[in-house]
Computed example of a mutant assay.
Amino acid sequence: MIRTLVVDDDFRVGQIHSDYVRRVPGFDVVGRAVSVAEALVAVRAQEPDLLLLDIFLPDGSGLDILRRLSQDQGDTRPDALVITADHDISSVRAAMKLGAVGYLVKPFGAPDLAERLLAYRRLSDRVDALSRTATTDQADVDALFSAARPPAALRIPAKGHSAPTLGAIHQALRDSRGSLSAAEAAEATGVSRATAQRYLSYLVKEGTVRLELRYGTNGRPEHLYRLAR
């Protein structure tokens, strides 16, 4: 689980964002903070992996938190996804320079946050995998940087499709490095086979996934799915 700390000075908004995070597979909310001071204490106490970080706080800026953590913890500080109503380019540039992994402008909905969180999870998983190897090549580096970006085809799911489920199915296909059946996708994501089949069919229609047929001894083809190149 990716341990997440939500930092927002509006208690109600912080609760909504916490609920959004809990809906995304692989994420857990370990605490909330409403100020710079509270956030710094919570980081030491909870040791989160990721901050959902507002910029406008009553005792300073969320960017001050990143500066302070960079000084105190260096490379071991938690990652940060900035979530704020501040769309000034200077704030965006400052967040980038301070190492924020994303910048999401309020107001936004659960699907918008979910796709950023799923992209972050892909990045985290790939970093963990590469850290177990002695060297990397250019393909590994390219994959690492592309993992942080939400797949374009998943940004606006069709009505009746959940962004977290869609992202989980897509991630299962990425992790397989090959083909998956609907049953295998269901097992990997924890959804029913019928649900996996419905989402896979949607991804095929969108051109993100390719359908393949594999014929067995009984002559009936098995439907397999792999990411389209």
Rank of each mutant, 00 (worst) to 15 (best):
G178R: 05
L154Q: 03
A42V: 02
L40P: 02
P221H: 08
H223Q: 13
V36C: 15
L81E: 06
L173I: 08
Q138L: 14
R155S: 13
V6A: 02
K106Q: 09
G216C: 06
H87M: 05
V105I: 15
T76V: 12
A134C: 01
A148P: 03
L180F: 07
E187D: 11
R32V: 10
E222G: 01
T4G: 04
P157L: 01
K106S: 09
R210F: 00
T76A: 15
D137Y: 05
I65G: 02
P221E: 07
H17F: 04
L53K: 09
G109F: 04
V36M: 10
E187W: 00
T189N: 05
A183G: 10
A139L: 13
S181E: 05
T165M: 12
S70E: 13
E38L: 06
L224F: 07
K106A: 11
L53Q: 11
T208S: 15
Y202S: 09
L113P: 03
R122Q: 06
L51E: 05
D49L: 01
L200Y: 01
D125A: 15
A182R: 01
Y20C: 10
D75E: 15
A134N: 04
G160L: 00
V30L: 08
D49C: 01
L173N: 10
G190F: 03
L123M: 14
A110Q: 15
L166H: 01
S131D: 12
Q138K: 10
A119N: 10
V209K: 08
V127L: 15
R44K: 13
E184R: 12
T84R: 04
L213M: 13
S179N: 08
V6H: 02
T195C: 05
S35R: 04
D28G: 10
V105F: 07
S35P: 03
P151H: 10
D8W: 02
A80K: 03
L144G: 10
F56E: 15
G62C: 08
P157F: 00
R44C: 05
R177G: 06
A39T: 13
L144M: 11
D140C: 04
D19T: 07
G102N: 11
Q46Y: 03
R229E: 15
L227W: 08
S146M: 07
Y202A: 12
A119Q: 09
D49N: 14
A45F: 00
R229Y: 01
A158R: 15
L130D: 02
T195R: 05
D137G: 13
R22E: 15
V82T: 06
V101T: 12
D88M: 05
F108I: 10
Y103T: 01
V105C: 09
L50Y: 13
G60Q: 07
A143T: 11
V29A: 09
